[in-house]
Design a binder for these strands. Structure first.
Lengths: 362, 362
DNA sequence: GGTTAGCACTCGACGAACGAGAGTGCTAAC
DNA sequence: GTTAGCACTCTCGTTCGTCGAGTGCTAACC
């Protein structure tokens, strides 16, 4: 799945051209006008619209028509049917976004401070922050937003604590350098006192502290032999830890916000389609797949089936990453119709990504 | 807002009648047939349909027509326009549900065991169980389901524990007889050792254990004076507990499942309407209001605007309660189109309500 | 050679006209 | 009290013609 090959593409176009045709400055201007208009209206754009609504050097519609025909041949435009206007292709959007990235768009001061205001909070729990970030971005863009925390795999354990919540059940709280896992329960011997649990917690913390989640495994067996006394408890704790380690490859905290925003756009005015989309949002694995991948990139763009989900055929996904603490990377993804307001989205992601990184490291 | 006045209504109808007309056995049979058909098809039901598809004693369509006319006069039927069939009114649905409750519908053994299977789990955390229950009901009914845990107000504290999760932050875990609250953070003095926190936790537990959440207040100030040593910590802890107590009036764990199920039904084929509905599901207060109210009733039925939400104008909400432990009541609510499959919904709620009560008490 | 005016052509959207079908209410007869 | 018969109403789907937006091509223009 090639998600980002614009550079090569530009080379190809600007140098060889296709069938003698070349992409030039003017074509680019026209293409941009078409994309801008289509993003705004979702209506196929005709040559006259361009001459009337956009400044492309006082050319006549006939000339625009010729250029559009060329752009179609070059693969940047599609025509739903003869005698309809043109709509941008995925290739066009990609070029468009690439050019936006060059003169990276800025948010208005007002909007930026609004966004930051949404994120400003005393809260330091990763989960809550992630949720807030998702809300903020979804609110600012009017698209669906998915935010993922860092992968658990390479976090370092800071402490482990067991807290009794029922006669035979304890909550295991695993604190790492980047997140707190507090949703695992283990069963305990009802005869253990809170002190016993505290001691066991201590021991666990002493032995595991500083280790990567990914190599707790080696340690666990050693622990088992050390703690002859509480064998049964330890067994279930180790099981639980093992489970966490196992899931760690894929485990990431994920928050979704603004799922229903998609219903704003005519692309999803069909309820069956909307339903499929919304259901897809509920399957964590799919979302994870969407956000995983090119983590090293500042931005990632996937259009249509490149998302890997047929439910998002008419969508595009823009992802950006932020730092959690040290070098853990989290990801923010915005999902909207392919004719997304890329400029705005990129600037929002820029702003929130930065704020989030600062917030989580400072 | 009277949500349940069927008894009086039946009295009224069966005795006085309206304008000389009376509700009789035959009218009732016809009304049921109409409701059954409309629930199934969502198409206004005509007199011929009744004679063909339902057994109403070999009457002709003309007779049915006369009866339908009467039923309309009595307020049980509406007519979208002349020359269309009739659709049941809210009053009709209420009567229908009341009669269903009399010979309380049973789930097939297969379905019942399937449902119970979904709920069977080692998990004892209230939140998780609630989520599972919501999923199970939503899956079985194909309607949106909301499940709420008991109100926090009259739970009894079992223990309080502080767990350090960052240098200046601790997680406060409040265990009560019915639920575990594990989402409150308090800031702590970085110089406190884990032992110190443990001791403070002990103290808190000793003093608060057995108290109602609703009257922790009195205790808190006393505690403050006792613990001269850790004044600052205690202050924030007490703040946090105070917050919990304050919110307790309204705080309930709430899980929603199958929100998008509504998109299955033609009543919500309009995206704008669907969007409004789905957004409403995201505001906790609205949901809480929906589930609160007649907690003493086994079942509650609200139709249309009685739900208190304009977004659910075409919906009905059926709620049932279950026991959490001792006498705490939780609530399950099913939200679907007004022409809901009430029989099925009631039997599912019956089954899940019972299972859940058993699970949480046994 | 690039640009543009002019023109014929295509195709979807929209609305009017129309018939079919479902349903009603009324009347008169059983 | 029940029902057959009938006139009437209203919605829905279809057809058909018109309108308008948009295209591509050609020929003229600078």
């Amino acid at each position: 799945m090639r998600t980002w090959f614009v550079r090569e593409l530009i080379m190809e176009i600007l140098q060889k051209g296709v069938g003698g045709m070349e992409m030039d400055e003017r074509k680019l201007r026209i293409l941009h006008a078409i994309i801008d208009d289509y993003i705004l209206t979702a209506i196929p754009v005709g040559s006259r619209t361009i001459t009337k609504k956009y400044d492309v050097g006082g050319l006549s519609s006939a000339t625009i028509r010729n250029e559009m025909s060329d752009l179609e041949a070059l693969g940047y435009l599609d025509q739903p049917h003869t005698s309809a206007g043109r709509i941008p292709s995925a290739k066009a959007y990609r070029l468009y976004v690439e050019s936006l990235l060059q003169n990276s768009p800025q948010l208005s001061a007002l909007e930026a401070s609004k966004l930051r205001g949404h994120l400003r909070t005393r809260e330091r729990q990763l989960g809550e922050l992630i949720r807030r970030a998702a809300d903020a971005v979804a609110g600012a863009t009017n698209y669906t937003t998915v935010v993922a925390g860092p992968k658990a795999l390479d976090m370092r354990v800071k402490s482990v604590q067991l807290v009794q919540v029922a006669s035979e059940t304890a909550l295991m709280i695993l604190v790492t350098d980047a997140a707190v896992f507090k949703d695992t329960t283990v069963s305990v011997d009802p005869e253990l006192s809170p002190e016993d649990l505290f001691q066991v917690s201590r021991l666990l913390t002493d032995h595991l502290s500083g280790r990567l989640i990914s190599d707790m495994g080696g340690c666990l067996n050693a622990l088992l032999s050390v703690l002859g006394e509480h064998t049964r408890l330890m067994q279930t704790v180790l099981d639980a830890l093992g489970r966490i380690e196992l899931e760690a490859t894929t485990t990431r905290e994920i928050a979704v916000s603004g799922g229903t925003n998609i219903l704003h756009y005519p692309e999803y005015s069909d309820t069956a389609k909307a339903r499929a989309f919304l259901n897809a949002l509920e399957t964590r694995e799919k979302l994870r797949a969407l956000l995983t991948g090119s983590q090293s990139m500042a931005f990632t763009l996937r259009i249509g089936l490149e998302t890997g989900m047929s439910e998002m055929e008419d969508c595009a996904v823009v992802t950006a990453s932020y730092q959690v603490s040290g070098d853990h990377l989290g990801t923010i993804g915005v999902i909207g119709p392919a004719r997304m307001r890329y400029g705005h989205v990129l600037s929002v992601l820029n702003c929130v990504g930065k704020s989030l990184s600062e917030l989580l490291n400072g």
